[in-house]
Design a protein around this nucleic acid. Structure first.
Lengths: 133, 133
DNA sequence: TAGGGCACTTTCCTAAAGGAAAGTAGTACC
DNA sequence: GGTACTACTTTCCTTTAGGAAAGTGCCCTA
């Protein structure tokens, strides 16, 4: 039997899916978003809140998140000068996706390893709520 | 202000999200799933249906998809011997996620480039339906 | 016995992601 | 003048993903 080619519309879908994945991929994007959501605003605070991240990577990821309009970089010009990063409302549109990815991941881990991996019902939803800790 | 650390539960969420991303990442996973869903079953058919994929990559991706129980490899032992790949029902649990990723990606593209990127309303849903084309 | 199809594997290579460590420019404080 | 803090950047290195091309083992048909 000859191979069936996918409809072009499907390939467009693949492209759109990949666009999204590109936005949330990168080993630290989620950690950064969480760090912002629990109240960290400044470069060094964000860095200190994420064990293992280097300034180079943090700078790069922040730039990408800003380009995607998920966060905003603001220069506060009193003394001493400060730079703050804050997540935009637009970032909230990612939450259902992140939640779904999390749920699927938890379930998948159970399926594959067939062992419990229980979590109190505090989810990304809570991690992402306006006031953390 | 000192950096706020994320709650451990949030880090577990990040892990779960990454688990899921790992499953659907890989440049060709989605294409392969689509190829299977439109009726391709055999190695060379799948390969021919996805322009640009090499046998090495295809073999690797198929192995990973099988490990994640999204597809099944079956040896059909009459003559000539055949090997068929079929997606498992479990793969369907990914559809809502893929759909959400696609929708977000389409919208994001509009937001970033501010230009229309219209698609007839046939989505992954239709790409993934049991009988393609 | 030669050639061809199938389902891969092997070898070699390139590009991109990611990381460690050090450096830098501006300001402030002592 | 020296030290420290902030927000990065730069250099160099390692790891990983992915790809091109060729090869392999098996069976089948002519």
């Amino acid at each position: 039997m000859a191979a069936k080619k996918a409809k072009p519309v499907c390939l467009d879908s693949v492209k759109a899916v990949r666009d999204t994945l590109e936005v949330i991929n990168g080993k630290w994007k989620l950690d950064i978003l969480i760090s912002l959501s629990i109240g960290n605003e400044r470069f060094t605070d964000i860095q200190d809140s994420i064990p293992g991240i280097t300034p180079k990577i943090l700078a790069k990821e922040l730039k990408e998140l800003e380009q995607h309009q998920l966060i905003k970089r603001t220069i506060i010009d009193d003394y001493p000068i400060k730079i703050v990063y804050r997540s935009e409302n637009y970032a909230h549109t990612l939450h259902p996706i992140i939640y779904a990815l999390k749920e699927w991941g938890l379930n998948h881990r159970k399926k594959i390893f067939n062992k419990g991996y229980v979590e109190t019902d505090a989810a990304i939803a809570s991690c992402m709520s306006e006031e953390g800790t």
